[in-house]
Write a protein that binds this DNA or RNA. Structure first.
Lengths: 204, 186
DNA sequence: GCTTTAAAAAGTAATCT
DNA sequence: AGATTACTTTTAAAAGC
């Protein structure tokens, strides 16, 4: 009887310690990513839900914590790419991606695809371009996405190409390399998306 | 226009069978030309056939997996070649080992570009997976037939998980009608 | 869960000329 | 700036860790 009681306390303590660890990791990664406190709160809510529905069994705490943070950023409309999240996590990108998909499916998060426009403010700020470039990039994204150019394309590369195009159109040219660096994509990707976008816009 | 069903092409067939005899893979690897066997890495011996092209995984238990064939007929042909090769090594092989098709991978073309964003929302975010940051295809799991379809922006698709060619035809029909009723095709 | 095998789809990436 | 090669996703079986 006494043993059972001790065991219960022990597991409760262990669970409590694990939760504390997960929450502190979410906090640490969120700070490193520079996301607002609201995102950490959303992430911890998702994490607690995953915990109560027993989705953590067989998975690393760190992996689930990172995935909930990735999901929270998206839900709050300020997405971080898997690559960016992986940089502040000790779990690799591939596992973060598959854990995210699992948690998302099991909790029915109904995540909408990331809108490339959500990357525009941050990328433009990192590049130090004007508000004009920013709104031009948003316009390019909306117009070309409506024509079906977005299907299957990565949101970061799509946003990067639109910003590159906008910087040219507004006479505030940034090089493909500069844009590629802030968006963490290759120049080849920017070139490919850029070509499609200006063609769709009829800018020859 | 053209019925998407007519664009269906079988790309890969996976089947399993067994010769009903235990094998010493070490000696088979020595005698069978072109055999790859590295038990540290994988317990099966890999043997590739040229005509038809396929890869057979041969196990100690005598069970065999054949993959890479372009049709169920090719699977049978390939495995017959494997059986004959083993007989040449004086290994007993059952007369007509049962061959079970485990998976068929098919490609098809809807002939129209697809707005995957709209499809992800339209078909319901619950049973769809679309993460273009990770993979350009939209993953759509069907219940009847029980297969998985990958839809691409080009209108091309891949259907996998089926056990007979009709599964892919049924799947294409269901996908087309569902996209049509949602107004997401054309 | 992982290991191996094959195949398609389309996007992204690394490496070489 | 190309071209090539390679990796991402899905599926199934096999035996063993």
């Amino acid at each position: 009887r006494l043993r059972k009681w001790q065991e219960r306390i022990r597991t409760k303590d262990a669970g409590e310690r694990n939760l504390q660890f997960a929450l502190s990791e979410i906090d640490r990664m969120a700070s490193a990513l520079g996301v607002p406190r609201s995102v950490r709160e959303v992430a911890s809510v998702i994490y607690r839900r995953a915990l109560s529905e027993d989705l953590i069994r067989g998975r690393s705490i760190e992996g689930v914590a990172t995935s909930t943070l990735y999901a929270a950023c998206r839900q709050e409309g300020i997405p971080r790419s898997l690559e960016e999240v992986a940089e502040v996590s000790r779990v690799d990108q591939k596992e973060i991606g598959r854990t995210y998909r699992y948690i998302s499916q099991e909790l029915g998060l109904e995540m909408r695809p990331v809108d490339p426009k959500q990357y525009v403010p941050r990328f433009c700020s990192d590049l130090g371009v004007s508000e004009e470039v920013q709104s031009k990039a948003n316009e390019i994204i909306d117009t070309t996405a409506e024509q079906g150019l977005l299907s299957g394309k990565s949101p970061t590369g799509y946003a990067a190409a639109a910003i590159y195009a906008a910087s040219l159109l507004c006479n505030e040219k940034k090089t493909q390399r500069e844009v590629a660096d802030v968006a963490q994509v290759t120049e080849v990707t920017i070139r490919n998306r850029y070509q499609e976008q200006i063609e769709a816009l009829g800018i020859h | 226009m053209t019925d998407p069903k007519e664009t269906i092409n079988i790309e890969n067939v996976v089947a399993s069978t067994g010769i009903g005899q235990e094998l010493d893979l070490q000696s088979v690897a020595m005698d069978l030309e072109g055999a790859d066997y590295d038990p540290e890495q994988f317990p099966g011996l890999v043997y590739r056939t040229q005509n038809p092209k396929s890869a057979a995984l041969i196990f100690r238990s005598g069970k065999i997996v054949c993959t890479g064939a372009k049709s169920t007929a090719d699977v049978h042909e390939s495995l017959e070649i494997v059986f004959d090769k083993l007989r040449e090594l004086n290994i007993e092989v059952n007369e007509n080992p049962e061959i079970v098709v485990q998976n068929i991978v098919t490609s098809a073309d809807l002939g129209r570009n697809l707005n995957l964003n709209a499809i992800a929302i339209g078909l319901g975010l619950e049973n769809i997976e679309y993460e273009p940051e990770q993979f350009p295809g939209l993953v759509y799991r069907l219940d009847e037939p029980e297969v998985v379809a990958l839809l691409f922006g080009s209108g091309k698709l891949v259907i996998t998980g089926g056990k007979k060619p009709e599964d892919a035809e049924q799947a294409v029909d269901k996908i087309v009608s569902r996209l049509e009723e949602l107004g997401l095709l054309e």
